[in-house]
Design a protein around this nucleic acid. Structure first.
Ligand SMILES: [Zn+2]
Ligand SMILES: [Zn+2]
Ligand SMILES: [Zn+2]
Ligand SMILES: [Zn+2]
Lengths: 134, 134
DNA sequence: TTGACTAATGTAATAACATCACATATCGAA
DNA sequence: TTCGATATGTGATGTTATTACATTAGTCAA
């Protein structure tokens, strides 16, 4: 994660699309939303997404090939631990949390196996409380 | 996960391709390997993969869109806990492990948030011990 | 100011991953 | 044997991501 900085025009457009969405968006959904702003090709979206990921402002959800704005943009939990995502398959809601014990156990495993970790994905799929009670 | 049973011809071919591979394979790589056995279309692979996943004989690695044979085919760890995968981005080696404490912490979170978990993905990307020392 | 460098953007084409729709085949139970 | 369930064959299509190349915009030192 690089230090945060001013966003370029395309980066701002992509970030705002994610920030105003109520759930994760695919790159192509973002593209369609931004056609009115002059976006014409997937690469315009992917390049902006890459930077925003680098800045830690958004996250990629590997299990659904989609992206979300970070729900804790002003905190620094990203530097301290791994992030887990609970993704509701019914409504799409994503809840982001960090657990020191999980982080520690993963680190224990990598340390004792000489594994140099670069990125860890933790995604819980299922049905959120709201949808389950409905 | 359904109970294990006899595999059909296509399922066997796909499983054997994964079992003899030294690392994860994409569906299209499997397809290419099985063209000599009469495979012609992606769906032949994906249908077999779906069944093998259902039987718990293989795993899907979400972060690399690939599949591996289960490395503990005769154990029953799958029924007890979540499985984590350490994936070497250099050599492709995948190590599978299960940690009761991680499993417990995830369950704690889902229970206290009313989240009905269906599947959990834990994938550690990085460089394995062998590759790191080389 | 100019030149040179880097970052950002535009665009088309292509690659990689996955599913839909529909037809046919196989197999076991009634 | 007839029926239903499961498995298979095949082409077309849908979805996600990258390659390749050209252009534009900022930065900074000579
Ligand atoms: Zn975050
Ligand atoms: Zn929900
Ligand atoms: Zn396994
Ligand atoms: Zn390795």
């Amino acid at each position: 994660m690089t230090t945060t900085q001013e966003l370029t025009k395309n980066q701002s457009l992509v970030f705002n699309a994610l920030a105003r969405a109520d759930g994760p968006l695919s790159a192509y959904t973002i593209l369609d939303q931004l056609r009115g702003d002059g976006f014409r090709a997937p690469l315009q979206v992917y390049r902006a997404l890459d930077k925003l990921l680098d800045y830690g402002m958004i996250h990629r959800l590997e299990s659904i090939n989609a992206f979300v704005a970070c729900s804790h943009p002003h905190e620094h939990h990203h530097s301290h631990g791994m992030i887990a995502f609970a993704i509701c398959d019914t409504c799409g809601q994503v809840t982001e949390f960090s657990d020191e014990i999980i982080t520690g156990r993963v680190r224990d495993w990598t340390n004792s196996n000489g594994f140099k970790q670069s990125k860890t994905t933790i995604e819980i799929r299922g049905v959120c409380g709201n949808c389950a009670s409905a």
